[in-house]
């Protein structure tokens, strides 16, 4: 097991992502940040706070549970459904930034796009992830990446955040081949 990102690494990555989001979207006005529970939602909150500090105004933030849209439900033990909260303004015509902790096969994001489609029609959908570990199974890419972590498929990446785990760190478990 090795530490891929320390607490300061994570903090710097999120600040950089916040700046990139603002730069790309020319401000926070039309943005909605939607975190994917559980850890993606906490990351969304942190990014929203950073953006608020930079811009001096609140940015719309919410969370989007994608459990009911997953295509691998039958392959795993039952998952509890997490809350979904969409800002009251809705997503119609907005620039939605999906936020997740680990970007892997792309299936979670595929499910998130489906879930979004049920809710409305945003102007654009972007993706921010803390860690991109590769091994995509679908033609999906991230717009904002905290860190690219080359891994083998047998390894697992664990993201720990203080809000849940009491510590900020990203660990890689298992042998690389």
């Amino acid at each position: 097991m090795s530490v891929a990102l320390s607490a300061p690494d994570i903090s710097r990555a999120l600040i950089r992502i916040s700046h990139e989001i603002l730069e790309r979207n020319q401000g926070a006005e039309n943005i909605i940040l939607l975190g994917i529970p559980t850890r993606g939602a906490h990351l969304a909150t942190r990014i929203s706070q950073t953006i608020s500090t930079i811009e001096g105004r609140d940015v719309a933030v919410g969370m989007l549970d994608i459990t009911m849209h997953r295509d691998d439900l039958r392959m795993r033990p039952l998952r509890a459904i997490m809350p979904t909260s969409i800002p009251s303004s809705g997503i119609e015509g907005r620039d939605v930034v999906l936020i997740d902790d680990v970007f892997f096969s792309g299936r979670t994001i595929r499910a998130a796009l489906d879930a979004l489609g049920e809710i409305g029609r945003p102007r654009s959908v972007q993706l921010a992830v803390l860690v991109d570990r590769g091994h995509r199974e679908l033609p999906i890419r991230a717009d904002y990446v905290g860190k690219n972590l080359p891994t083998s498929p047998t390894q697992s990446v664990r993201v720990h955040l203080t809000e849940i785990d009491g510590i900020d760190e990203v660990l890689i478990e298992g042998e690389s081949n």
Binding site: D65, M68, H69, L73, I81, M82, P83, T84, I86, D114, E118, I119, G120
Partner: peptide
Amino acid sequence: ELSRISDGQVKKLPT
């Protein structure tokens, strides 16, 4: 959670 979804516009989930 499901009642929140059905309260909104979503009437159908692919689950």
